[in-house]
Amino acid sequence: MIFALLVHDAPVGRHSSQAAYRFASELLAGGHTLFRVFFFGDGVHNSTRLNLTPGNETDLPQRWSRLAAELGVDLVSCVGSALRRGIVDEAQARQHALEAANLRDGFELSGLGQLVEASIRCDRLVVFGG
């Protein structure tokens, strides 16, 4: 079975990104296919590389990035949500003459078409919010 996940909320201050990450890693450990994780709205805060997490807490942006590096999971942050919230990749930073880019390795910025494609290609879409 092919899965896709939609993540609505920020990794800090809310619970659901943690639940989404746990679900994703358990899926991969169980041999299922994770087509894509799409981060929408405040969910794009999962894709920053400028967060610092105390050592005894889970660094979700880092964990997601590791999933992408080690298991090739496709992580897409909604570009419209991201630019409004100060999450930018190198190309956007250059284009808009911003002083820095902060999109974490393993993530890409793209449009809602990526969520639509995931909805078409997967067998199960699971939404995480709150």
Binding site: R124, L125, V127, G129, G130
Partner: peptide, 10 residues
């Protein structure tokens, strides 16, 4: 897997 769709409430 056992259900055709999921609905998240938050």
């Amino acid at each position: 897997l056992a259900h055709e769709r999921s609905v998240s409430w938050f």
